[in-house]
Structure formats: C-alpha cells, structure tokens
Amino acid sequence: MAFDYEKYIRPGKLPHIWCPGCGHGIVMKGMIRAMDTLGLEKNNTAIVSGIGCASRLPGYIDCCTLHTAHGRAAAFATGVKLAKPEMTVILVGGDGDGTAIGGNHFIHACRRNIDMTYIIMNNYIYGMTGGQFSPTTPHMHKASTTPYGNPDPSFDIAKLAIGAGATFVARGTAFHANQIDKLIVEAIQHKGFSVVEILDDCPTTYGRRNKFKSVIEMMNRLKEVAVPVKAAEKMTPEQLAGKVLTGILYKEDKPEYCSEYQKVIERAGGAAR
C-alpha cells in the first residue's frame, strides 16, 4: 500500500529545497516511516537541527521542531530533553554541522548518554555553503576549498560516537532505503544517546568535483561500499578494504542522563517530577 507521507508533512511545504538526486529526501522518508511505525505523537516529538542542507529537514515535518545555530543542535536538544524528559527528541544534521562545527557538542552529548537520537546525514561535504571539505571528506578527494585534493584523513563518525560514549550506533546508506526506517526505529527505542549515520550523496557539490557522472553512479557507489555487519564477519581484511560496515554497529546499556539528573535533584531535596 502506498505510504501516506503527507500525514507528517506541513501543508504547502513541498517540493523541498534539496537538489535533484539528493539523498536527504530518502532519509526524511525513512524517518517519517519510522515515526509512523512507532506511532509517535506529533505534539510529543521534537526534531532539532543546526544549519546546513540536512538541517532544513525539520521545516518540512509537522512536529515540534527547532532550527538552531550552526552545530548547536545537540546543545539545544539537551535543553529540550531535560525540560521535557517525556518527549521523544530527534536530532538531524549533516556531517559538517555534526562533527566539525558541532563536534564538541556531539562528543559531549555522546558522553552524557542522554536519551536522544541523532541522525547524521553524511554526504562527505559542506553542501549548502558551497562545497567546502568537511571532516568526513575522503583523503585526496576534491572540494571547492581543496581543488588539488584534500590532504586530511577523514573521521569515521560511527567510531567517533562509540569512542565518545554513545550507547547505540548504527549506519545505513541512502541507497538501502528500506533499512533506514528500521535503524531509526531501533535507535529511538534505545534508552540513551543513539547515533544513526546515513551515508548520503551530494551530486551538486561533491559528485561533480569527484568524477561521479550522475546521481545513479553515486547511489551505486553507496551500494558497492556498504557491507552488512553480519556479512563482514565472514570476510577477510583484504576483502573489507575500502568497505563501510552498515547495520547496528554498537549497542550497550548504560545509565541515562535524565534519570541520573533526577537522582541529583532528589538528593538536593528538590521536587520529584
């Protein structure tokens, strides 16, 4: 049956601003399907973003939404969650917003293990500001500020999140559209800070500078590099060279920040919530 996406979209907001072939729309659809699966109430769901292409997403979704300063989605979302712990808080953003400008907020939100879900759309570049290289631009790939190739090694967002203390880390791609909503459902259900990295394509500022002839070529690349975690267990390190693991990469149970904070309030003699 055709899925009714309009139910979760603010009337009159479509068509969206993303370029032809941009995977952010696919991720937004996955997110809407996940929200529908979980039956999230619009008034009880907050979607928080920073600045960037991916951060335009909350503008389209008919929930409580917050479009904040560049990189500060995690900071604002922490405030929302502490003030209203019963709310489901979802953060969305890109790789530049999340790991460069908001890198510090990102790692500390991971460390606190506050019950939120961070969906990072990793398109390997700063799309909106004109294609500057981001911390995830692959080594020697081109961007508008690195026309001869980017000499920096790149971040692995999933490993960064695990290292910083996030208790649920998953990765999907815009090509594997069916998997996106399943990962997001698991991430929202997890009590603690969940990071879902979705590998995305940016045909406008990344693809055309890096010899991708079309959107289809970029999508096929995502298909080729992605290896499910279970399949990777049977592969040799040589076979895994240049591949990216997808699926649920890490999960553990640790004390959640809101409940820990409530203990502090009680110890200090404050009112119970």
Binding site: M1, H16, C22, K29
Partner: peptide
C-alpha cells in the same frame, strides 16, 4: 520507485 523517490513525487497504489 516510491521508496527511493527523494522528492515525494511517486505514489504506487496497488
């Protein structure tokens, strides 16, 4: 097609 369309432009009604 409905699943992958990034622009919410296709609806398949079986």
């Amino acid at each position: 097609c409905e699943l992958r369309c990034p622009d919410f432009a296709i609806k398949v009604i079986p």
